[in-house]
Nucleic acid binder design. Structure first.
Lengths: 350, 350
DNA sequence: CCGATTTAATGGAACGTTCCACTTATTGGC
DNA sequence: GCCAATAAGTGGAACGTTCCATTAAATCGG
């Protein structure tokens, strides 16, 4: 009866060597596939490993190697499906390359972030993909990741940090969706949600402003409303917006979850979204598709960004001393119901 | 200017010792906090570590230790918000205890699952929390986790595997929501979605059957419809159900995502969910709350299950040789709109 | 002021690998 | 049949820690 694990204590390369009647060096050779070993011997060693239930000890190997096949993935908010999808993309590519991911969730806490990054370095991670927590500073990150560990900052750009980066094209996406509303005839457009201290908000708002300016429109300062980037935040900011004397006819939201909050607020006031008012989001999370009316938004392909991030990090890990690179991913307009485009088409046709 | 990382190469405990004028043993003492070291000396060592940018090497330490502070978390479907929430719960407890999680997503692939579990063991994980991929067999798992690595199976019960387990009370939850529909006067109730090979489906369907039997109702075999546990699966299964000669007046779905698919199918046939037909789910994902009409479902507290799983695993890791334990979490009825309870109350009152 | 105890610190042998420098066998060219 | 080249395999010194057995110095009770 072969293939039976029957070990009590940890079985090592040396016991395999004894069982197969070779030296530990030879076992190491078949483990790493490096030297040349007679097929017959290789087979004998393989069988000994199966029989004794051998488990390769990467910790010990890395002690000599330096090359660890571990990558850290630090997420600011795993409960947000957008980041979950991003993580899936990252993981797929890493697994393909034989790497394993240390995944951690910071819940927007910079102290947790520092903790987990330190942990990852201590475990010998060759690189870290970081979606930084809200108040991350470049200084912190500089010392949280030494030059042993390649750093890649994703999703949230972090000016002033020497690392690779992967972000969606927030400016272009925001400009795109704003133009869409302008094309539908809207002139009084609000920008709603997110705090202006957030870099992503700054980028998206810039896209909005540029599109408005290009259309020759002034921006009414009262139509720029901040909020927490949550459903509740969107709800209350939208409530304020609707109480304004000059109520907007269209609203560009910071992201989908804010937009959905805003939609609820509008509905509560008896407005039919897509007819009485246009509301659009950003991200194209799966919720955007299934909310009613379905949300017009900007798709940024979270999975694709994750894959790209992983690929770029691996490149930088293997090809050490390559300079940090940046990638800006596409941001595509997805027209659904909440912008009233179909309503509009109908009116125009009839 | 203190606190400056200025290392080119990896700095070790020995260099710290030299810099602080002590032996490596003393540095190890302050690192582990074990022996008694003069506060003054401790401080000197701490400063040397800061100045040289020392990073503790856990791989090397574990070589002696055996105790690794790594726990693996293997998820079958991270894109499902339910598992993302579960993961958050797990991670919170692990981080609190100074552990770090190796998180991996198998996308229901048993070969990926085997790969990542092997990887985790190779990295010296002290335990693994596993949400098993669909066709996992007890045999595979037995050899995928040796007796070095404590195994805890979560969410999906796996009969015949010697491991701790944490699952929600699927039978009771399903019975509960079925009784709710019976109380609303429904008699012709379908069970929809999931494949009957899935243990979770078996448990949930059993709860359904028992509640029906207790109400003295026979189950019409044509009203037990399988489907993939996805939105599309729910959609097509519901379409078939509606084409049936004796159409059901209520539908108990395998989970929320199937239920949402079913709702779409019903809406497409011109039925108003919650008035013309009752549809209920299971899990209480965040989508259930925000879909329209809001979904009546069973809440199982994914985060809580995750926390519990992590706590139980840690217990078993530290208190080695403790026998495997099981936990069955609560499953509470959440009444919203899709079951028509409000409609029903209205009718009853008027 | 002595022996016993406590405190503070130290070498050095593990831990399980890799990999370099070697040795032996085997093969090939001529 | 000889030399060179290749194939197959081997010891032993790292790698960065921990921890046991010691030592040296300080403290203490009587």
């Amino acid at each position: 009866m072969p293939q039976r694990a029957e070990s009590r204590e940890k079985v090592t390369i040396i016991e395999i060597a004894d069982a197969a009647g070779v030296s530990k060096s030879t076992v190491s050779l078949v483990l790493t596939g490096r030297g040349s070993v007679k097929p017959e011997t290789r087979e004998r060693i393989r069988q000994a490993m199966d029989k004794l239930g051998y488990v390769y000890n990467r910790g010990a190997a890395n002690l000599r190697n330096t090359h660890s096949k571990i990558v850290g993935l630090v997420l600011n908010d795993l409960s947000n499906p957008f980041f979950a999808e991003f993580a899936i993309g990252v993981e797929t590519v890493l697994q393909m390359a034989g790497y394993v991911a240390f995944m951690a969730n910071t819940s927007e806490s910079v102290v947790r972030q520092a903790q987990v990054m330190r942990m990852m370095r201590e475990h010998g991670a060759g690189g870290i993909i970081l979606c930084p927590a809200l108040d991350s500073t470049p200084e912190e990150l500089a010392l949280a990741s030494g030059q042993e560990t390649a750093l890649l900052v994703a999703i949230r750009r972090l000016p002033g940090v020497a690392a690779s980066s992967v972000v969606p094209d927030n400016v272009a996406g925001s400009a795109r969706i704003t133009r869409h509303l302008l094309n539908l005839g809207h002139r009084r457009i609000a920008y709603l949600g997110g705090m202006s201290s957030m870099v992503v908000r700054q980028d998206r708002h810039r896209g909005f402003s540029e599109a408005m300016a290009k259309a020759g429109l002034l921006i009414d300062a009262s139509l720029n409303l901040e909020s927490m980037p949550t459903r509740d935040g969107g709800f209350s900011a939208m409530s304020s917006a609707l109480a304004l004397p000059g109520r907007p006819t269209a609203v560009v939201c910071y992201n989908d979850v804010v937009a959905i909050g805003a939609m609820l607020a509008a509905a509560k006031r008896g407005l039919v979204v897509g007819r009485d008012i246009a509301i659009v989001g950003f991200d194209d999370t799966s919720e955007a598709r299934h909310v009613s009316p379905a949300l017009t938004t900007i798709a940024v392909d979270a999975v694709g960004l994750g894959e790209r991030a992983a690929a770029m990090l691996l490149e930088r890990i293997t090809n050490r001393s390559a300079p940090p690179t940046s990638h800006v991913g596409p941001a595509d307009l997805v027209i659904r119901e909440s912008c009233g485009a179909y309503q509009h088409a109908l009116t125009a046709a009839g």
